[in-house]
Design a binder for these strands. Structure first.
Lengths: 260, 260
DNA sequence: ACGGCTGTGTTCATTGAATGGACACCGCTT
DNA sequence: AAGCGGTGTCCATTCAATGAACACAGCCGT
């Protein structure tokens, strides 16, 4: 097929690679941007991007830049966890928010990261890095630790033996310390993180369990280190987490399972 | 390339066709479903679907069915209009909702349909057909008429000369009547629809204008035909619409433009 | 037990769609 | 006026995509 070039590569993989170049913070990319980020020849990238644009998967703005198209957004709307969990959890998030007036987040596991599927933010609360749809590391965030600890030994080993990036001075990167924390987390269902991702910000998280006892998400509140005492936050997070889990069909008797 | 088969077809188009088979109401599809809906040979569909699953664009559930994957949802998150407009408009939608306790919708134009990008629904309010991410016809909905009337003559002619489906007994399908309504709508920026989509449901809509005077969205409230008087609803919809437009940089002096 | 039916998974010879180097244009800076 | 980066187009080459064919498992009615 190709005059020359990189073999063993499917068209599909190239097409998807072009798509997944779009990331939070890089939502409007020129053709040249796509070429740089994918490393593919520009004629190839162009053909693929134009085809995606033809289908409405990408939009092309008057200035020539590509953005994610509405049709792709519509498709995303159909993702299962997202829609049901979000609408189910929303009232609880709102209650938590009115009670604490702090950032409230709902996240699920995706690969080796946590994905934020819903957030309520206080205007007066400190700015956070990531948005809805954004990703968080597993080893140094509240929701991350909760999800990781219930993600099965395979995932845990993969993450712990991989690069544990030191996002902040107080990030915990010693795998033995983490392993112990995860064990605690598996027992209690909660995780408390102090300034591990961003200096000055703490996070209190709780697992969300469905009717089969599977941990399908994590709920967390992000607070300033000096502001509220964690003892005050933790109970409400636990209560809300249990409430959501209950709506998902979980009952106190159901044993919480690992792995996913 | 193919042993035999339909030529003039790109791999990309096939891949996207598989993706876009997923629609509201059909969010979990078996391989056989995909084959039926695309009409492509099952070996081909399988190859494409598996590749999409490998990349996380689709998920494969234990029962073998495919669903839209989280990564696709994340991508959709990056669509421009969606995220900014939604967060911007949300407070206004909430205000409208608390004032009226009826369905409140925000929609944008996509091709020859309106796409709902945000909705607040009253639990006690009547069930609606479509969800967030769902589509509405242009010729017999409030948001549709608002968007259509400002969509340029090209779009208007295309829609009016196309099939004007009669969703309900009171649907207006006479193109001359519609043309007059659209002219009114262009002048006032609002549209009122009585039982044209669903018997018993009316809708009051208002355009959202950005700083350049372009109509980028439409806001609407859906009410029972017999419930509140439209005169009471209309002013609040107008007020909220103006509020959102103002946040988008629109000032009373800016002339509203057509076409998009 | 058996044939029919549907859903799923795998194989492989064939071939045309994908490829990417090359060329060209435009606007901008040096 | 030469250099540069971004964008757009062309076309001979060739290998990845194709899909008919085969295989198997589960289910139903007989």
């Amino acid at each position: 097929m190709p005059r020359t070039g990189e073999p063993g590569r499917t068209v599909g993989s190239r097409l998807l690679e072009v798509l997944f170049v779009f990331q939070p913070g890089h939502t409007a990319l020129s053709l040249a941007d796509l070429v740089r980020k994918t490393g593919m020849p520009h004629a190839t990238v162009r053909r693929l991007a134009m085809e995606l644009a033809d289908f409405g998967a990408l939009d092309r703005r008057p200035d020539g830049r590509f953005t994610v198209g509405l049709r792709l957004w519509q498709l995303g709307t159909l993702a299962p966890l997202t829609e049901s969990l979000r609408t189910l959890a929303q009232p609880f998030l709102e209650d938590l928010y009115t009670a604490l007036h702090q950032h409230v987040q709902l996240a699920v596991l995706e690969g080796r990261q946590a994905v934020i599927i819903e957030r309520l933010s206080a205007p007066e609360a400190p700015e956070l890095v990531s948005q809805v749809g954004g990703r968080l590391p597993l080893h140094c965030t509240g929701v991350g630790k909760v999800l990781l600890s219930h993600g099965g030994t395979e995932l845990i080993e993969a993450v712990l033996s991989g690069e544990l990036r030191e996002y902040a001075p107080r990030s915990i990167v010693a795998s033995e310390v983490l392993r112990k924390e995860l064990a605690d987390c598996r027992r209690t269902g909660t995780a408390t993180v102090r300034e591990e991702l961003t200096p000055g910000l703490d996070s209190v998280a709780m697992r969300i369990v469905n009717g089969e006892g599977r941990v399908v998400a994590a709920l967390s509140v992000v607070v300033r280190t000096d502001s509220v005492k964690h003892q005050e936050v933790l109970p409400s997070v636990i209560a809300s987490g249990l409430g959501i889990s209950r709506l998902l069909g979980w009952r106190p008797g159901v044993k919480v399972r690992n792995n996913s």
